[in-house]
Amino acid sequence: MGVKKQRIFRTIGITLGSIILVIGLLAPLVWLLISSVADLKELLKIPLQWIPENISFERYSKILFSQGSESEFRKTMMNSFVVASAVTLICVSIGSLSAYAFSRLKFPGKDKILFVLLFSYMLPPVAIIIPIYQIFSRYNLLDTKIALILVYSAIITPFVIWIMRTYFDSIPRDLEDAAKIDGCTYLGILFRIMIPLSAPGIVATLLLAFLMSWEEFFMALIMTSSVASKT
Results as ranks from 00 to 15, higher is better:
A101C: 11
M223C: 08
L89W: 08
P124Y: 03
L114M: 15
Y60K: 08
S96Q: 01
L105A: 11
V22R: 07
S103V: 03
D169F: 04
F65N: 05
L44P: 06
L32S: 12
F9I: 15
S36L: 14
A84T: 14
G95P: 00
F73Y: 15
Y167M: 06
Q134Y: 05
D111M: 08
Q134H: 05
S93P: 01
K112D: 07
V160T: 12
S137L: 05
V83K: 03
L206T: 15
R74L: 13
A179F: 10
F191S: 02
I94M: 08
L114T: 02
E42A: 11
W214C: 04
F119H: 02
K145L: 15
I34M: 11
Q134K: 08
F168R: 11
M219W: 03
L16V: 12
Y139F: 15
M77W: 10
L190M: 13
S226G: 07
V82H: 04
L97I: 10
L29Y: 07
T15A: 15
I146H: 12
S103P: 00
I132C: 02
A127R: 00
M219G: 06
A209C: 13
M194C: 11
I193N: 07
L114Q: 11
K62W: 09
F168W: 08
F73W: 14
L29D: 00
D39E: 07
I34Y: 04
E70K: 13
S170F: 02
F210K: 10
N79L: 11
K145M: 15
L150R: 01
G2R: 12
G109F: 04
A84Y: 03
T166I: 05
L208W: 13
A99Q: 01
V203H: 06
A27N: 08
I90V: 14
R59F: 04
S56T: 12
A101D: 01
N79Q: 13
D177M: 07
K41Q: 12
V37K: 12
S103M: 10
V87G: 03
R59V: 09
R74N: 06
L26E: 06
F217N: 04
P28D: 10
I149D: 13
I94H: 03
L118C: 04
A147I: 00
N79I: 14
I8N: 06
P47R: 09
S61R: 12
S66A: 11
Y60G: 04
V22D: 03
L48A: 08
I94W: 01
F217G: 00
R7P: 13
V37N: 08
E216R: 12
A147Q: 07
E216W: 01
S226D: 03
L48G: 05
I128V: 01
S137D: 11
S225F: 14
T144P: 14
M223P: 02
L16A: 14
A178F: 13
L211S: 05
Q49K: 15
F168S: 06
M219V: 07
R74P: 05
I8H: 09
A99R: 03
G183R: 08
L48E: 00
W50A: 14
